[in-house]
Amino acid sequence: MATSEDTGAGAAAALIERYLEHARVERRLAGRTLDIYAEHLRALAAKMAEARLPVDRVTAAHVRRWMAQMHSAGREPRGIALVLSCWRSFFRWLGQQRLVPFNPVQDVRAPKAARPLPKALAVDDAVQLAELHDPDADPWTEARDRAIVELLYGCGLRVSELVGLDVHAGKDARGWVDLDAGEAQVLGKGSKRRGVPVGGKAADALRTWLAVRDQCAALPAARVRDPASAAALFIGRTGMRFSAQSVWKTAKARSLKAGLPAAVHPHMLRHSFASHVLQSSSDLRAVQELLGHANITTTQVYTRLDFQHLAKAYDAAHPRAKAKDDTE
């Protein structure tokens, strides 16, 4: 084991250069990766010099304090995790060289990144999209695309659940819509089947689509190539079952036609469904069942969206929400 004098703070720069050469030659790290390692390791050397610490005296407590400083300075958790990864690799190499007694970064973990909130439309924007009538689309395509948007927003379906729907129930069907019962049966994650209510607007849109669906000239040929297309609720102009990618393109195109500020993807309509139901009902368990979440903690993210909605309403309406304007 080397002495503290050999591995003092003054020698840190030389050790870092030796390690970077090892990473370049032996580990064959890319040039950009080496630049990142060099930046973070030189920052480490500066922290050791400031604390008058040789490399063999650095402890996990020191590393955690430096990590806290980075966090308070505004560095994101992912960035901190990258820094720690560089430091961890450096101290691992020092241990292999018998220059440190242990790796002080080994059990230090970066702060958890905040789970991003799902993107949901405002109620008015969602209604504007659902009620869009595209004058440039032919009646067949317009009927199909309106029914797709109504089901995504009105039932909170995943895109995979939507494209798996058949016209009629059957033992081989992944899902179907029973308009008389006002319910859709879908096959969700983990092959779990659930029933979802179909609202009046979505039911009307589906009836309009079903009245024209079989007018697709390519449907007979598609039935020969893929018999399953005969059962599919949503089909394309080729007569084949509509794909998830096609649903994404449809949602994006209609949102732009509707004049929304940003393109909409199918899962955003599912988020909007959950957020709007929760805003109106405050029934988290019901939203969990409607979405088909196995764990309610997955659904709880929508309570944060609901709180944002309430906070905006409070700021806009409550006389004590904002400080009085001194100019009044």
Results as ranks from 00 to 15, higher is better:
Lys192Pro: 00
Thr303Lys: 05
Met268Phe: 13
Thr299Gly: 14
Glu26Val: 09
His265Asp: 05
Gln96Ser: 07
Cys86Met: 06
Ala169Phe: 01
Leu179Lys: 01
Leu44Phe: 15
Asp326Tyr: 08
Glu50Val: 14
Ala81Cys: 03
Ser89Ala: 09
Met70Val: 02
Ser229Pro: 13
Val247Leu: 01
Thr3Ser: 14
Ala13Ile: 05
His62Ser: 14
Leu278Asp: 15
Gly259His: 01
Ala137Phe: 09
Pro104Gln: 10
Pro261Tyr: 02
Gly31Ser: 07
Asn295Asp: 14
Arg88Glu: 00
Asp136Cys: 08
Ser272Tyr: 14
His168Ser: 09
Cys155Val: 08
Val264Trp: 06
Thr299Trp: 13
Asp6Phe: 08
Lys312Tyr: 02
Thr141Lys: 06
Pro227Thr: 03
Met48Tyr: 12
Ile16Tyr: 15
Leu99Thr: 04
Leu269Arg: 15
Trp93Glu: 07
Arg320Tyr: 02
Ala244Lys: 02
Ala137Gly: 04
Gly74Thr: 06
Leu157Pro: 00
Asp326Ile: 10
Ala262Pro: 00
Ala81His: 02
Gly164Ala: 06
Val167Ala: 08
Tyr153Val: 03
Ile235Gln: 03
Leu165Cys: 10
Thr297Val: 07
Arg109Phe: 08
Trp140Ala: 10
Gly154Glu: 09
His62Gly: 11
Ser255Tyr: 07
Arg88Tyr: 02
Arg115Asn: 00
Val108Lys: 02
Ala311Val: 04
Ala68Phe: 03
Arg88Trp: 00
